[in-house]
Write a protein that binds this DNA or RNA. Structure first.
Lengths: 192, 192, 192, 192
DNA sequence: CATGAATGAGAGTTCATTCAT
DNA sequence: GATGAATGAACTCTCATTCAT
């Protein structure tokens, strides 16, 4: 792919992201994308055959962004501190109103459920579990946390986060509510 | 509405339910319903103007069914036993593969988010919280449970259940996994 | 036809008149009529098979009404006075905004142009010509009017009236404008 | 708009004109147009959203045509001669059987009566009045005509023409009849 | 007679997708 | 590569008309 091509793709992805954030996945048509990108109808088809393949690229581009954001996390924090940071980040994602893709992601996954081990939500969930598990284990080693089964605990926590994310997407949830749940989860493992 | 009319409505609701269970909410067209019910194109419009109003009736009919099912719960069980029954029921709902409406419900709520305090998912969530809270409080009174803040606990549990429901809808979840989470939630409140 | 039947027909005609006055002829559906009459769908078909046959009856009923109205004209007026009354009546019909059927009549006649010598507009026109012609002739005999060819004059006057009626139906016309034309027509024949 | 596009539009307008001439305005469907143009269903919507906007273009195209036709009028004729030519032209328009748009124009204007000062019939009428008025005034100056109030006379004449046009559209009118009226109008102003 | 549920034809409209330029 | 006109399939919705009750 030439540079020009890659640039154009970036442009499409960026505009399409807005559309998906606004309308979810299922209701978005190729026409919507074309209009948002201000490119030609045929032009879009040179890069993407359907909304699904485009949406996958939107997700990829979003992940890259997220990684860049989280790079500044590193440093010399303790596991306990890192877990707090992780929760704070999740809280932000859960409460974000504008430009969030959750609705689209849900709709996409419902639609592509049969896909081969490539389920985005599952991956996201597993990734979260792994991070939390590692941090809890680290905290236990540091003497900050007490937890018999970090893996099980991590799963439970991720379910809570997913539940809140869903409620936020389908209805609404207050920052206070999220804080309460996070606090409650922390208290369950932290050494008094 | 005459008996005849009500019967027909029941028929439409029943057939439509299948369609929604299979295709979700957004992808379902009036044509799909017409074909599933084997009625005429115009005939459906006699009863429902759009998929949304029909879907609302499907949900209502589903709730009535659920109430009938849960009537046989009553009896002389303790709160602790009742909570176990509640979780078992939830497990069944979470794991059900066929004929479940979750996907459709999610898609419907995403689409109608602005609706006036009539959010189905929120109502479902609040209802669950109320039940759990009551049962925990009862269990505490019976000396079966220990819990400082039953309301907060109930919310946390419902988030876990919602999280599992979502994972099950968008990806998959094993009975063992559900059992583990339920067991873990019970252990947190049960007196050793 | 039984009395009851005739009564019902009257009811349908009366309601249908409103509909035609408001929507013209072509845009009116059998459904519109049914709703306006608050009778059953099938019920209407017992009396009228289509909007055209119903409209014909509306016109007939309207004519009967008009005749009743004009009965009180009689008396001991001169032809010149009667012509003035006729013009005044026409003026009222031309300027009437509510409940007038002109639009519907035009649309109906356009649609049924091929009909066999039953053209409503033509009949109306011819009727008007006959009246004016008679009155002019009478006026000439009385020495009030001067006119070489009353028939030709009458036709010319009816064209003016038709032209004003059309303008009023398709656009708008002011009472002053109508007065001016009527005055001008009178002056052409009146003895100075 | 590209040349190609303009050409296609011309083609649509031309075919649509036939349809409107034949069926009037209200009874014409987008489907009728599609079939007459032999283009695709969606293709028509690329150019026109509804029959009304298309009809407006048909009228515009017709006016342009009319202007071309009347260009050869110019020259060194007297006002009196020009008025005769104008009446002859009107006679032709009134008597034309095929491809005339009057019915469609009437139906369109009835339907769009509320439109903002853009009434086609009114404009047509006012235009005619202006022409006649100018020509009468010119004729008076030349000593060919006698007329105290050319403006009033012009209005009266246009009403006669409109009346004849309506009769011709809704019923029928003979060339002799039109000639008689025109002659009669001329005699009223011509110097003996 | 009267009802109104039911049917099915047909109009309107939108889009995914193709293809000549 | 890029464009955007063109196509045709699919869906929504409305009504005239029928018919069992």
């Amino acid at each position: 792919m030439s540079d020009r091509s890659a640039e154009k793709k970036q442009h499409i992805i960026k505009c399409a992201r807005e559309v998906f954030a606004q309308k979810g996945f299922l209701a978005v048509t190729m026409k919507d994308i074309v209009e948002a990108c201000e490119i030609s109808r045929g032009g879009l088809y040179l890069y993407y055959d359907n909304t699904a393949s485009l949406f996958l690229d939107v997700l990829k581009y979003d992940e890259e962004d997220a990684e860049k954001d989280s790079e500044d996390i590193s440093g010399d924090m303790t596991s306990a501190e890192l877990l707090a940071v992780f929760f704070k980040e999740q809280k932000k994602l859960i409460l974000r109103k504008k430009n969030r893709l959750w609705r689209a992601i849900y709709e996409y996954c419902f639609d592509q459920k049969d896909a081969p081990g490539e389920n985005f939500i599952q991956k996201q969930f597993d990734g979260g579990v792994r991070i939390i598990e590692t941090l809890i284990a680290g905290g236990v080693a540091d003497g900050d946390f007490v937890c018999e089964d970090p893996a099980a605990k991590a799963r439970g926590m991720m379910y809570v986060l997913e539940g809140m994310r869903l409620l936020s997407t389908a209805s609404a949830i207050s920052p206070k509510e999220v804080d309460r749940e996070i606090l409650s989860m922390m208290q369950e493992i932290v050494v008094d």
